[in-house]
């Protein structure tokens, strides 16, 4: 690619240099009226975003750097504040729930760090298109890139918080369970879900501006009804456990990662529930994004 245009070149129309056109510069935009063309455009959008992975990565890293520009600890403020919160909550709630601190703290640290990831993903996913408005209106780019940016950024923040979990496990002399390898498919599902929820909420929030507060309050309620600060064992053998634990999508998603690390044998039920809810989410996000994608530039 010719990078710099040298001044003074007397290019005349007749001697126009004919540069080859790469496939990504061949664009055909048709007003989509049927599902096959909508879904095709949606997939090319998502593949386009995947091709721009370096840009997505850099944007995410810059987002985090920008938040902590000028602070000494930088992103490790996140780690520190999570650590302080878990330390304080761990001691208080272990007393309140009459739990053994040595089993409760590892549980709480895992739950809270995972929950923070989940709630940040929904909150920032909601505004993924709104906050990228200048970029969206300046040039054509795959729109799903903005959802991918939210996912990468929040998983990077999560990576900082893993330190808290490691420290808590070390202090409490707890070893990760033997089935911990199950967190690999667990996180794979989390990443796909995170992308889907960002697309879905991002579209809704671009169109309807009162959605972000609704999402925030739903997540607030979910925090209390989901076994995050209270152990699922509290509700064992009680009817309400079916609603709050077994059929709660948040509980299932937490359990497929938390369970194996805490040494629970591999369970089928949380996986089935998590996969079930995820399929619904992915289908909904795919359908909504394919319809709304051409309109997002008008909405933001």
């Amino acid at each position: 690619m010719n990078m710099t245009s040298l001044p003074g070149s007397d290019a005349v129309q007749a001697h126009m240099p004919e540069t080859a056109i790469s496939p990504e510069n061949r664009i055909s935009i048709t007003a989509a009226r049927n599902w096959p063309s909508r879904v095709k455009a949606e997939f090319s959008d998502i593949f386009g975003a995947a091709h721009l992975w370096r840009l997505v990565w850099t944007l995410s890293v810059l987002d985090i750097q920008q938040r902590y520009r000028g602070s000494i600890l930088g992103p490790f403020w996140l780690t520190l504040s999570t650590g302080v919160m878990i330390g304080a909550m761990g001691v208080i709630y272990a007393g309140l729930f009459h739990e053994n601190v040595h089993t409760y703290l590892p549980f709480l640290s895992l739950s809270l760090v995972l929950w923070n990831l989940m709630s940040a993903l929904t909150a920032e996913g909601s505004t993924c298109f709104l906050t990228s408005e200048p970029m969206i209106r300046a040039m054509r780019m795959p729109l799903s890139m903005h959802a991918a940016r939210v996912v990468v950024r929040n998983f990077l923040v999560f990576a900082h918080n893993i330190i808290v979990i490691v420290v808590v496990f070390a202090i409490m002399h707890t070893m990760p369970g033997r089935y911990s390898f199950m967190i690999i498919p667990g996180f794979a599902l989390w990443i796909v879900d995170a992308f889907a929820i960002s697309l879905l909420l991002g579209v809704f929030c671009a169109r309807f501006r009162d959605i972000p507060p609704i999402v925030a309050s739903i997540m607030q309620i979910a925090f209390f009804v989901t076994p995050i600060i209270w152990s699922p064992a509290v509700l064992a053998h009680r009817g309400i456990a079916i609603v709050l634990i077994t059929w709660n999508p948040f509980a299932a998603l937490l359990e497929i990662i938390r369970g194996p690390i805490l040494g629970t044998p591999i369970q089928l039920m949380p996986w089935l529930v998590a996969l079930g809810y995820s399929s619904i989410l992915i289908i909904a996000a795919g359908a909504i994004f394919s319809i709304a994608r051409p309109r997002i530039a008008y909405w933001v």
């Binding site: 056109i21 790469s22 510069n25 061949r26 664009i27 055909s28 935009i29 048709t30 007003a31 969206i136 209106r137 300046a138 040039m139 054509r140 994608r293 051409p294 309109r295 530039a297 008008y298």
Partner: peptide, 19 residues
């Protein structure tokens, strides 16, 4: 530039666009 997608009709662009 392909930023606004049309509600009707069709656009084909061949070439690297700078807007």
């Amino acid at each position: 530039a392909g930023i606004y997608e049309p509600v009707d009709g069709r656009i084909s662009i061949n070439g690297k666009v700078t807007a």
